[in-house]
Amino acid sequence: MYRLYGEMRAMKMLKTILKQLSNKPVTTTFPAEPARYFDATRGHIVFDPSKCTSCTICVKRCPSQAITVDRVAKLWTIDRFRCVICNQCVELCSFDAVSLGTAYSASVTADERGTETFEITYVRPKKPKKEHGNEE
């Protein structure tokens, strides 16, 4: 009786082992293999310096205070270590200057602090048709 039970269990185990052997691994060997992303993946924040009007809405509303804007020097800085990729800045920017990229940002050393600075190249149109983004 016990032997039969033991054999049954062994068969079951063998089935599981064979299944595991034939199955593809669930994990990928990143970075040797590229990571899998979905279209919706919130990977990192992409900034377009030609569209940013330095309105600083993103600075004020970022929950983790990851963005700083220097209006005089025309610099837009993001601290990738602070950014939690919550999508808030993307939703709030009325000029489409920030968007989401699907790939995760590369790792950096502690010295670099993960900050990335962009020079804002946006030029105000010469004769604006009173098209101020009503951001208030």
């Binding site: 979905f38 279209d39 919706a40 919130r42 939690v84 990729i85 919550c86 999508n87």
Partner: peptide, 10 residues
């Protein structure tokens, strides 16, 4: 695939 986040969905 649906929210963009795995653990923190936002």
């Amino acid at each position: 695939a649906t929210t963009g986040g795995r653990v923190i969905q936002g």
